[in-house]
Design a protein around this nucleic acid. Structure first.
Lengths: 193, 193
DNA sequence: CACTGCCTTCCTACTAGTAGGTAGACAAAA
DNA sequence: TTTTGTCTACCTACTAGTAGGAAGGCAGTG
C-alpha cells in the first residue's frame, strides 16, 4: 500500500497536520523537510512562499469540505440527518484523536496576524460553511423539522461558533466528551417540539 | 497621568497584548523591546527565558481573574447575578474591542506545543475557573434559581467551553454580537422555569 | 534511431534576517 | 559595597527565501 500522493500533496498533508498542532507560526519549512525527507529548497520549488503554501492548503481544505457537505446534502434524507452527520463527523474525529481537526478553527484564532491571502481564505471557508448550514436549517424549517428562534443565517453562525469553539475547548482540556456536551444541547434546541 | 508600572509589569502587559494578538509563537523579545523602548537583553534580565515570562504572565492573569471572581461572589447578590456579571464582563470586552481578550483562551488553542510550564498553568487557570463556575451553579441550584440537566461540574465545563469558544469565534469572524448570541441561550437554559 | 532542447524535480550551497539567550561594563540606588 | 537595572556587543540556531546546477522524462526534428 505505497503512497501514491504527489510531492506537493505530501507537503500540504504534513503542513496541515503541523498547523493543526501549532498554528501558522508553529511550523517551518525545515519541519516539513524533515517529515517527508526532502530538502527545504525543494519545498520552495513547489510553494515559493510560506503564505502561498498555506493559502493553497486552505483552498484545498475548503474544496474538500464543500465536496463533503455537498454529498452529505445529496445522501442524507432529511435536514435533521444532514446536521447530525455533520456533527457526528467532528465528534468521531475528536474522539478518535484522529488528526483531521479543523485547520480553519486553528487558523481562526490567529486571524489577527495571518497574511492577508490566508486570512481572507479562512474567512471564505467560514462563509461557505455558514451558507451550507443556513440552507440546511432553512430546509428543516420548511419541512417542519426545526423551530428557530432567530433568522436561519444567524442561527447558522451561532451553530458554527459553537462547533468550532467546542472543538478547541475539547482539545485544550483533553476531554473529547466536551464537544458533544456543548454542541448536543445546541442542536437539540433546534428541533421542533 | 504617567505610567507608574514597574518595568517587569510593563513587559508583562505588552507580552500579554502580543499573545492575545498572535499566540505564543507570534511574538518575540524584539517585539517587546521595540514596544517599550528597552533592549532585548534587559528583558532577559527580568525574565531569563521566554517560557518563564509567559508562565509568570499566566500566573498573574490567573491571580487577577481569581481576585475578580472572588469579589464578584462577595458583591453580587444571587448566583444568577454573579453568572450574568461574568458573562457581561467578557461581552463588554469584546464589544469595545478592548484588548483584555482572555489570554488563556488564546494559549489553549496552542496547548499542544506550549512549553510544559506554560501548558500546566493554562490548565490550572481553567481548573480554577471551572471550580468557581461549579460553585456558583451549585449555589444557584440550592437556592432554586437554576435547574441543571447534568452535574454542576459538567455544566460548568460546558459553560466555560461555550464562553471561550464564542470568544474566539466572535473575534475571528469580526462579529462581537456572536458572543452573546452563542452564550446567551446557554445561560438562559440554566434558569429555572 | 540519435540528437537537441525544454521542463520538472530535486539537490547543494548560500543569503539576509530573526529567534532566544549570554557576557561583561557601567551607573545609580540601597 | 553590594544589588539592581540597563546597556553594548556578541553568540548560536534557526527563519524564509535564492542561485545555480544535476538528473531524468519527454517532446520534436534530422
Amino acid at each position: 500500500m505505497k503512497s501514491t500522493a504527489s510531492t506537493s500533496e505530501k507537503i500540504l498533508d504534513i503542513a496541515q497536520s503541523l498547523i493543526v498542532a501549532g498554528g501558522y507560526n508553529g511550523f517551518s519549512y525545515a519541519d516539513i523537510s524533515a517529515a517527508i525527507g526532502i530538502r527545504k529548497a525543494s519545498i520552495h520549488h513547489h510553494f515559493p512562499a510560506k503564505a502561498e503554501l498555506v493559502a493553497v492548503l486552505v483552498d484545498r481544505y475548503t474544496r474538500q469540505a464543500q465536496a463533503g457537505l455537498q454529498s452529505l446534502r445529496e445522501q442524507a434524507a432529511s435536514p435533521a440527518d444532514q446536521l447530525q452527520f455533520y456533527i457526528d463527523y467532528w465528534r468521531s474525529c475528536i474522539e478518535n484523536a484522529s488528526q483531521p481537526f479543523c485547520v480553519c478553527a486553528m487558523l481562526a484564532s490567529e486571524m489577527q496576524m495571518l497574511p492577508d491571502e490566508v486570512a481572507s481564505r479562512v474567512r471564505a471557508h467560514f462563509q461557505g460553511l455558514a451558507a451550507w448550514l443556513t440552507s440546511v436549517l432553512q430546509a428543516g424549517v420548511e419541512q417542519g423539522l426545526f423551530r428557530l428562534d432567530k433568522r436561519p443565517e444567524e442561527q447558522a453562525q451561532m451553530l458554527m461558533a459553537s462547533v468550532h469553539g467546542a472543538m478547541l475547548s475539547a482539545r485544550a482540556l483533553g476531554d473529547p466528551g466536551l464537544f458533544i456536551a456543548v454542541v448536543g444541547p445546541e442542536i437539540a434546541m433546534l428541533r421542533a417540539a
